[in-house]
Structure formats: C-alpha cells, structure tokens
Nucleic acid binder design. Structure first.
Lengths: 107, 107
DNA sequence: GCACGGTACCACGCAATGCACAGTAGTGGA
DNA sequence: TCCACTACTGTGCATTGCGTGGTACCGTGC
C-alpha cells in the first residue's frame, strides 16, 4: 500500500494538529510532521495544504523576519480552524475505529 | 472533513478485509462494507477497486448464476492478496497510531 | 569573492483514486 | 405495464499529495 495515498484528506487534520499548539511556518510545520512520524510528507504538500486551509478561512497568517534565512510566513489557527480541528478529529477517530475493526484489531 | 477523501488508499484494504473471510461479488462486498460502518462508499468505487485488485493479481474471479437477478462475479483472495492484506494492515495500524498520537488520543 | 548547504517559499503539472452519472440487463411484485 | 431491486460496466470529473524546478536569503569554508 502506498503510504502517500493514506494522507489523502488527513494531511489537513495533521497540519491543524501541529498548529493547534503553536503557530508555525511552512518549513517548521514540515519538520514537526516528520518528527511526529509522517516521515514521507513532501514539502510541497505541506505548503499546498497551508495555502488551502488559509484560503478556506481556517488560518490567519503573518510574516516574521528571520536572521537565519528568508522571511517566515507564520500560520495560526483561528476559531473556525479550531472548530474544524475538533470536527475532523471526531471524523478521523470514528473512521479509524471502523477500519481497525474491519481489519481485525490485534492490539 | 470530507469522509470520501479518507478512503483514499484505504478502500483497497477494506475490500481485502471483507474478502479475507469469504468470497464475495461486488454488490455483496458493497453491502458488507456499508454494514461495517463505511456507510458512504459508492458502488462504482467498490467495483472499480475490485477490478483494480484483480488486475494487480491479488484476486481470482469466477461467475455464478443467480436466480434473484443477473450473474454474480465472485472474487476471492489468492496468496499474493493475503500477503498484501497483511502488509497493508501493518501499514494502516502504524499510520493510524501516528495520527492518533498527533491529534491527541482521547480514548 | 564564491561555491555550497541549509533555510524558506512558490508554481506547474502529473498520478492516483473515489465518485456521480448513465447505461445495460435480469427478476419479480403491484 | 411500470417500478424496484439486484448486478455490473464505462466515462469523465474533482480532490489532493507529490516531483521537479525555480527564487532567494544566510553563514561557513576555501
């Protein structure tokens, strides 16, 4: 099974999850996701997802200068974003439970 | 979150899971998946997935006449299919655990 | 000074896949 | 006769993750 397909529709949730605790910029979100275990996430996927969530009105954004490189575009969850996070988490948990039962959970 | 996107790459596993226990034909697999909790699976998705798995050499197929309607095309797991099921299950479990930790498991 | 690697972001186009929709066809009941 | 249910197929679309390449800034080592 190609792990990249598993991310479909879940990367949104993953990004919201890491932003939920602390604002972050693209490159940072990428690192945090990989550290969390999503080793194969592509950078373009993360930037794309951030833009998508921003355009959907779930994130706010502000630019901060850095002395270690180019400017950083920070993203932060707003209220709709937090709500979406809660909803998506519920959807995910329910879906994951269904799938685990289907394949026969052996935990 | 659109639940349909969650199925991406997982429908294969779900179909393998229901066929693992008993051979089935498309319409039947569809009903079994919906009964298992995947309420929104489209019929075309299931037929398409069955064809894809068959073309990938993971399923065998045979036709059986029915007295309640048209002929039924049964599918069955073969050895590669069973192996794929085991691999995909591992991938899924690992992925699901990672995601659950990310969103903060509240079980 | 300059090449190089790490940081940071973006645009373009592709590929996979679930789905809607339409079509074909058999069976049986109102 | 019409309709609902069963059963399968084909076409085309939308979403979305990713590969690739490009821009640009910074510090280090030569």
């Amino acid at each position: 099974m190609d792990p990249s397909q598993l991310l479909k529709g879940v990367l949104d949730l993953a990004v919201l999850a890491v932003l939920r605790e602390e604002d972050g910029y693209g490159y940072d979100v990428l690192r945090r996701l990989r550290k969390a275990g999503l080793d194969d996430v592509g950078d373009a996927s993360v930037y794309g997802t951030l833009r998508r969530l921003y355009n959907a009105g779930l994130l706010t954004s502000y630019v901060v200068a850095s002395d270690e490189g180019p400017n950083r575009k920070y993203y932060a969850l707003n209220e709709p974003g937090r709500q979406r996070f809660r909803e998506s988490t519920d959807t995910w948990n329910s879906f994951a439970r269904t799938m685990s039962e289907l394949v026969g959970e052996t935990r």
